[in-house]
């Protein structure tokens, strides 16, 4: 029994005392059930984003890949080619610099840079604030370029309709198996830099097979931002996704 407060005793008195004194004896700590997911808060904020985006009739993509797979280049091409027909807005996630936002701004599309500092991924809270400057109802497609990282962004829902995972042929075809989380979370895998295939021994079919082993439902497109090969299919995929989103809203 504790000399200071008598807390080893049972009954009401023991429940009421305050532990201001240091004690070196064990007395039974109370157990509290929690059962809350670590990502619960992010998921709640993401659900809020999703509702907001859906109300605005917005089709939203979360572009993920290793650093340098070609996310910004794909966006630049897409904005230049489709800019006249569709209204885009872009969120750029990077740890530092506004290089990517500057490249997007040069296409004339509204863009916001989010710098995550030490953070290795965007989260739903950053996106909620990131879109504040955009006129969402006057936008058709919101593109969110995540921090270049094939691991960490996989678990963080931003409120997007789809994650789109880019993989460039210089990275090797084994990446979907080595980083399964990302390819499992993605609706679409884009194999980029097809123009470099002649210089490499990247096996496209094996790469697709690996991706389907972790995600049998994943859609796959092959293209080159450099040559333009395969871009038409990507534009079709975008148009179909936007149409579907709008149809679901009606």
């Amino acid at each position: 029994m504790c000399i200071n407060c008598g807390c080893a005793g049972t009954g009401a008195a023991s429940a009421l005392h305050v532990h201001e004194h240091a004690h070196d004896h064990d007395h039974a700590p109370r157990a509290v059930r929690v059962e809350e997911d670590l990502l619960a808060k992010n998921d709640r904020l993401a659900a809020g984003n999703r509702t907001r985006f859906t109300r605005a009739g917005l089709f939203v993509l979360n572009l993920v890949s290793s650093p340098g797979s070609g996310k910004t280049t794909l966006l630049e091409r897409t904005l230049r080619d489709l800019g006249p027909q569709l209204r885009f807005a872009v969120l750029e996630g990077d740890q530092q610099t506004s290089f990517d936002a500057d490249r997007i701004a040069a296409t004339g599309v509204p863009v916001r840079q989010i710098n995550t500092g030490a953070g290795c991924h965007l989260d739903a809270h950053m996106v909620a604030h990131g879109v504040e400057a955009f006129d969402l109802p006057a936008t058709d497609i919101l593109m969110i370029e995540n921090v270049g990282n094939l691991v960490c962004p996989a678990g963080f829902d931003l409120g997007e309709d789809h994650k789109v995972a880019l993989l460039s042929v210089t990275e090797g075809e084994d990446k979907p198996l080595k980083y399964p989380q990302m390819f499992e979370a993605a609706s679409l895998m884009i194999i980029n830099k097809l123009d470099l295939l002649p210089y490499l021994d990247f096996d496209v079919e094996r790469c697709k097979d690996f991706a389907r082993r972790v995600n049998p439902r994943i859609a796959i497109l092959e293209l080159s931002c450099r040559s333009g090969a395969g871009l038409a299919a990507w534009y079709d995929w975008l148009a179909a996704g936007l149409a579907q989103k709008r149809a679901a809203r009606e």
Partner: peptide
């Protein structure tokens, strides 16, 4: 799973 299940508190 990534879930806080329970705490022990004083």
């Amino acid at each position: 799973e990534l879930r806080v299940m329970e705490l022990e508190i004083d």
